[in-house]
């Protein structure tokens, strides 16, 4: 437990180092930049509300990814799965049951979004299990395909007749718009869903047979095979679940923020990739991931601030994020999570 908090503290240190590197490139003083990030993200009610809004998709994607990384399979496709979730929700709202009442529509929207994200994630899983394909490359390729698919929809069959030919779907009816807290953009149904799911996943992971199996496979795949676990089934299940969670995030973005489907870059600014870092920095622990998501939501919000008020490029924050990931790696708590590597040594 203590080690976790130490890591969390050290990660903040790496942010500081990254900021210094940025100083060398751009000449913006580190303290000025840090103050700008912190005050904009955490220094006001408004900043906090935006941080929380950004944290919602990170939580859901990060939770899903943690399941996959826990079992030592690499789902890097959360970005695409999020987008497919958004597509599923849009399909339900605009083309299946546009007139359904709110209480029916919203749950079904989330359900279908989760299914769409899950199915999208099953593709790399099936290809891995059946053809032994590298799931990292396949899930990444599917991100690019999903982006083009969303763009195809909004430029093609789903382009709204009411939007003057611009690539927008028709606006969602109010019955499909998620309620928000006061005048913030926090679509709280998605947030509550994320928190509940974090607890459920925590229970699955540490208190259920499935969780035990996931952890055994992640820790030592040879031992799992020895014990007669159905590894293929578990890999499929893990991908289905992690894709489903990312799909929920996509539903939250279209139903809670945009209220329509639009071009892919308008829906997600790389949440699926940031979530990889969130999952690892959260030590693949569901509850810690919630906390880390909030931190990274803040970083993303701070990223806008340093762009507007200090003139730094938007990529700056991506750079800081990647440094954090390297730090996570160098700290070695990714190794600790995949002891199969060490096991292999003792086998020799």
């Amino acid at each position: 437990m203590l080690k976790r908090y130490r890591n969390l503290g050290l990660s903040i240190l790496v942010i500081l180092l990254g900021i210094f590197a940025i100083y060398l490139v751009s000449g913006v003083r580190p303290d000025v930049m840090l103050r700008s990030i912190v005050t904009s993200a955490f220094g006001s009610i408004y900043g906090l509300s935006e941080t929380l809004t950004k944290a919602i998709p990170l939580m859901l994607c990060g939770l899903g990814l943690s399941l996959s990384f826990r079992s030592s399979v690499w789902n890097i496709g959360a970005e695409g799965q999020l987008l497919m979730g958004a597509v599923g929700a849009t399909w339900i709202v605009l083309y299946v049951m546009p007139n359904a009442p709110k209480l029916v529509l919203i749950p079904i929207m989330f359900l279908v979004g989760a299914i769409c994200g899950g199915i999208w994630a099953l593709i790399p899983a099936i290809l891995k299990v059946k053809f032994n394909l590298n799931e990292i490359i396949v899930s990444l390729m599917l991100n690019y395909i999903a982006i083009e698919f969303v763009n195809y929809l909004v430029y093609g069959p789903w382009k709204s007749p009411y939007e003057w030919g611009f690539p927008y779907s028709t606006k969602f009816p109010t019955s499909a718009q998620l309620p928000r807290i006061l005048d913030t953009r926090i679509h709280y149904p998605t947030l509550i869903l994320a928190l509940i799911l974090a607890i459920i996943i925590y229970i699955i992971l540490y208190k259920s047979k499935l969780g035990y199996e996931i952890r055994v496979i992640g820790d030592n795949i040879d031992a799992a095979r020895y014990a007669g676990l159905d590894i293929h089934r578990i890999i499929l299940l893990v991908f289905l679940l992690s894709g489903g969670l990312a799909g929920l995030a996509g539903v939250g973005e279209v139903a809670g923020i945009h209220h329509r489907l639009r071009v892919a870059s308008g829906i997600s600014s790389g949440y699926g990739y940031t979530a990889v870092i969130v999952a690892w920095l959260g030590c693949l622990d569901p509850l810690l991931i919630i906390l880390v998501s909030f931190l990274f939501g803040g970083l993303l919000v701070g990223g806008d601030a340093i762009q507007v008020s200090l003139g730094l490029p938007g990529a700056t924050i991506n750079f800081i994020n990647s440094l954090i990931l390297i730090f996570v790696l160098v700290q070695g708590f990714s190794n600790a999570r995949i002891p199969s590597i060490r096991k292999r040594k003792s086998e020799r």
Binding site: E50, G266, S269, A305, S309, G314
Partner: peptide
């Protein structure tokens, strides 16, 4: 004011908020 460039469509609201509230 210094302009905000390369603002993704998904983030436009927050940039406007920032300009109004902070700047």
């Amino acid at each position: 004011l210094p302009p905000a460039e390369s603002v993704p469509e998904a983030d436009a609201v927050r940039f406007i908020d920032r300009f109004v509230r902070e700047e």
